[in-house]
């Protein structure tokens, strides 16, 4: 009865990109922690604040740079079939989404500087009511995907 799970994974480079992005924003956390430590030393606040700040920043970095991107990447699957697109993603809560081809209004690819460096792009699929994103595909694959989706998508006007 159950439909087989989607099989295709997103690019392995995605993991690298996510890790770089996460490093950038955990840098902010480290700066904040550094500021807190400086204040603690200046005003002679209790010493445990220093330890706590370092611990929080370290745990944050570990979670967002190493653990979560890996889990997220492992979970991300997609599949484009004749009649529908299926996505499966999520770290703790796994979400599976079906988008019928006849509901697809348009497909976009986009890439930021980081994605461009690794020649990846993100594909977004829009229906009349929702927008779905497949992150970090190889550029060529994303392009093919966009073309094949727009070829398969036939919007049935009367249903919208």
């Amino acid at each position: 009865m159950t439909i087989s799970e989607p099989q295709k994974r997103i690019s392995e480079q995605a993991l690298t990109v996510w890790k770089i992005a996460a490093s950038l924003h955990s840098l902010v956390v480290w700066v904040l922690a550094g500021g807190l430590i400086a204040i603690t030393i200046l005003f002679d606040f209790p010493k445990w604040i220093i330890a706590a700040a370092i611990a929080v920043a370290a745990v944050y970095s570990y979670l967002f740079i190493f653990l979560l991107p890996t889990l997220r990447w492992k979970r991300w699957r997609y599949e484009v079939r004749e009649q529908e697109i299926e996505l499966q993603y999520g770290v703790f809560i796994i979400k599976r989404t079906l988008i019928p081809m006849i509901r697809v209004q348009h497909v976009d690819t986009q890439q930021g500087p980081l994605l461009r460096k690794y020649s990846l792009s993100t594909v977004t699929v829009s229906t009349a009511a929702t927008v779905h994103e497949i992150p970090a595909l190889d550029m060529e694959e994303a392009e093919n995907l966009r073309i094949s989706i727009s070829r398969l998508a036939r919007v049935a006007d009367e249903d919208v």
Binding site: I94, L98, T127, A128, T130
Partner: peptide, 29 residues
């Protein structure tokens, strides 16, 4: 069926253990 734009199933770790799931359907409005 022909008005539903996308259809999702969500399962958390705890839901999976209990064989439960959350379902969501979106129509245009």
């Amino acid at each position: 069926k022909n008005k539903v734009q996308s259809f999702s199933v969500k399962e958390s770790f705890f839901q999976r253990k209990k064989k439960l799931a959350t379902i969501e359907a979106i129509v245009k409005s």
